[in-house]
């Protein structure tokens, strides 16, 4: 990671941690000046950008985040069985506008199943989901058409909302740019790398400006820069009032979310009572 990448990551980190915009700009400008005049590797001079951002937050504090809005998604008592195996028991989650909820848990504990039930793509054996507003869903993989171009995906999704071709293409390209991807090329989806294909997948899910965005480990194949951009974009969407639920197994990102739903079953007692367990206050 060179100095520019380091500064970019620091900017994203400060934004994620809700450092006031002016203060963040000031911190980044000071760091850039220091590096330019003094030289040296930013990792040696300042340490990892995440750690430096943490120190900045401790020193100057954060701007108060917007108050969460009305409830956008309420899932209550979700139970799902596959044959004799119960994968979800009485899972409950409430997410408001302007919040990010993380669904975590061990492999096979029902994270994707929970998300598919919230999206209405699968029926639970018990429980119900109330959604206020439009839903967007990004699957873990698949969900794109091999032989279509990125622009054609945008047109296809846009037509579902009655959006004309030109604006749909422009909106798709702009959303892709937020992930550091120029989507206007003449490349079919099947020829995209795994990470770029996931960017297309993610872009499609945000294209219809959903009020509730459901993301099933959408960062598969992302490089470090894209991963930072991804969380940066989630923060922007949250600040714009979108309720976001993201399935993740990367626990180091949990400080960036507002709510955590852990679906891991406890071996000794059978099950945890699933519910809100923490996250950023």
């Amino acid at each position: 990671m060179n100095a520019d990448d380091w500064l970019r990551t620091l900017t994203a980190e400060l934004h994620q941690r809700r450092v006031a915009a002016d203060a963040a700009r000031h911190v980044v400008a000071e760091a850039a000046t220091h590096l330019r005049e003094g030289g040296g590797d930013p990792w040696v001079v300042f340490g990892p950008p995440q750690q430096y951002a943490g120190a900045v937050v401790e020193s100057i504090g954060t701007a108060p985040g917007p108050r969460p809005g009305p409830v956008r998604l309420h899932a209550a008592g979700i139970t799902k069985r596959y044959g004799r195996r119960t994968v979800l028991r009485d899972a409950t989650l409430t997410v408001r506008a302007g919040q990010i909820a993380a669904v975590v848990g061990a492999n096979g504990c029902g994270k994707s199943t929970f998300l598919r039930i919230c999206a209405g793509l699968m029926s639970p054996d018990a429980g119900e989901v109330t959604v206020s507003g439009r839903l967007g869903y990004c699957p873990q993989s698949g969900g794109t058409a091999d032989f279509l171009l990125a622009d054609e995906h945008f047109v296809l999704v846009g037509a579902g909302q009655g959006v004309a071709r030109g604006p749909a293409r422009r909106a798709g390209r702009a959303a892709a740019r937020q992930l550091g991807w120029e989507a206007g090329g003449d490349v079919q989806a099947r020829h995209l790398s795994g990470g770029t294909r996931q960017k297309l997948n993610l872009t499609m899910s945000t294209l219809s400006a959903p009020d509730v965005l459901l993301l099933d480990e959408p960062y598969q194949g992302f490089d470090q820069g894209t991963y930072v951009n991804f969380w940066d974009q989630l923060s922007r969407l949250r600040d714009a009032g979108t309720a976001i639920i993201v399935v993740t197994h990367l626990l180091n990102q949990l400080d960036r979310v507002d709510i955590v739903l852990d679906l891991t079953p406890a071996r000794e007692t059978g099950w945890h009572a699933p519910g809100i367990q923490g996250g950023r206050p």
Partner: peptide, 9 residues
């Protein structure tokens, strides 16, 4: 699906 209830924003 029946379990999913949509409300206006």
């Amino acid at each position: 699906r029946r379990h999913l209830r949509h409300l206006p924003v």
